[in-house]
Amino acid sequence: MVHGLATVLTIKDGCLYLSLYVQPKASRDKWLGRHGDELKLAITAPPIDGKANDHVIRLIAKQCKVAKSKVTLIRGQQSRHKHIKVESPTIIPNELSQYLT
């Protein structure tokens, strides 16, 4: 493990696991790099009625080229700190692949 990067982004048993810090109500969707032991993701959706969670799932599914049903919010339904699981990602976006150990 290099400087705790394994906690940010890991692949285990064909699944991609991400630790995210989500910034809702941003002007655009954008990966903002490391934020402590997490990756920071700015999204346009507001943190109301699960809209931010749905937006994060749709965005990650699109970027990893998988169905939304393959993206699971493991932890952080009511928090900016989220743990996401992506089953069998077709691709790992360039914005994320640099954080793989």
Rank of each mutant, 00 (worst) to 15 (best):
M1E: 09
M1P: 01
M1G: 14
M1W: 04
M1Q: 10
M1L: 11
V2H: 14
V2P: 09
H3C: 09
G4L: 06
G4E: 11
L5K: 12
L5Y: 11
A6Q: 12
T7F: 14
T10K: 08
I11R: 03
I11Q: 09
K12R: 15
K12Q: 15
D13H: 14
C15T: 09
L16H: 02
L16D: 02
Y17T: 07
Y17D: 07
Y17A: 07
S19Q: 12
S19A: 15
L20F: 06
V22D: 05
V22I: 07
Q23R: 12
Q23P: 08
P24I: 03
P24W: 00
K25S: 15
S27K: 13
R28G: 00
D29S: 14
D29M: 10
K30S: 13
W31S: 08
W31Y: 13
L32M: 15
G33S: 04
R34D: 02
R34I: 04
R34P: 07
D37K: 03
D37M: 00
D37S: 08
E38K: 15
L39F: 11
K40V: 03
A42N: 06
A45N: 04
A45K: 02
P46A: 14
P46F: 02
P46D: 10
G50M: 05
A52G: 12
D54Y: 04
D54M: 05
H55N: 14
H55D: 15
H55C: 14
I57Q: 00
I57M: 05
R58F: 06
R58W: 07
R58T: 08
L59Q: 10
L59E: 13
L59R: 06
I60M: 10
I60E: 10
A61D: 01
A61P: 01
A61I: 00
Q63T: 03
Q63L: 07
C64W: 04
C64M: 07
A67M: 12
K68W: 00
K70L: 12
K70C: 13
V71N: 04
V71C: 00
T72W: 07
L73A: 08
I74C: 10
I74A: 08
R75A: 03
R75G: 02
G76C: 03
Q77E: 09
Q78L: 12
S79K: 14
S79R: 13
H81N: 06
H83C: 10
I84G: 02
K85V: 02
K85W: 05
V86P: 04
V86F: 01
E87V: 08
E87I: 07
E87H: 09
S88F: 03
S88M: 03
P89L: 07
I91A: 07
I91N: 06
I91K: 10
I92D: 02
I92S: 08
I92V: 13
P93N: 00
E95F: 01
L96H: 01
S97R: 13
S97T: 13
T101Y: 12
T101E: 09
